[in-house]
């Protein structure tokens, strides 16, 4: 079977690769490009640890072929910080103890990043529904919700002072 040339933007950089069509996006990221931020938890579209942004939407990269993403724009957790400056969500997770083992965290960060891009002021309910495709084995979600609220305050503060 023929390999396919793909071209996509990942964290703002153009990437070209020649891949087997069956290669899942998560493997392109982790194994070909060394972007090991997105994790593989279940590989069955359930846990959300592999969540990345594709064309402005959260997707589970274990259930998208890299060829499907060709022509598109991908953002992974590696693209979240601004140089050494953490994204307010990353700061929020650190501040509010939004993680313990950290396995779900890259997916949680990318999902909540998109959630706040789409809706800067979600209610607690909307946050919980928003992360319902992301499983955390450790935190019981309480501190994740707090971390998102922390980031909301921070982002709101930024907007107010800029």
């Amino acid at each position: 079977m023929a390999k396919t040339d793909i071209k996509l933007t990942i964290n703002g950089e153009e990437v070209e690769a020649t891949v087997e069509p069956r290669m899942l996006l998560i493997y392109l990221l982790r194994e070909h490009l060394g972007l090991t931020g997105a994790h593989i938890g279940c590989e069955t579209s359930h846990c959300g640890a592999c969540t990345v942004d594709l064309d402005g939407k959260s997707v589970k990269s274990c259930t998208v072929f890299a060829v499907q993403a060709s022509g598109g724009e991908v953002m992974t957790v590696e693209g979240l910080a601004n140089g050494a400056e953490l994204h307010p969500l990353q700061a929020g997770f650190a501040e509010e103890h939004g993680l313990q083992c950290g396995f779900c965290t890259p997916g949680m960060l990318m999902r909540t990043y998109r959630l706040l891009e789409d809706n800067p002021n979600p209610s607690e309910d909307e946050i919980r529904v928003g992360i319902s495709g992301n499983i955390c084995r450790c935190t019981g979600y309480q501190n994740i919700v707090k971390a998102v609220r922390h980031a909301m305050r921070e982002l709101g503060h930024k907007e107010a002072t800029e």
Binding site: S58, V59, K60, R111, G133
Partner: peptide, 9 residues
């Protein structure tokens, strides 16, 4: 149906 990520695809 499913969750937000699945519904996006």
């Amino acid at each position: 149906i499913a969750d937000p990520q699945v519904r996006n695809m």
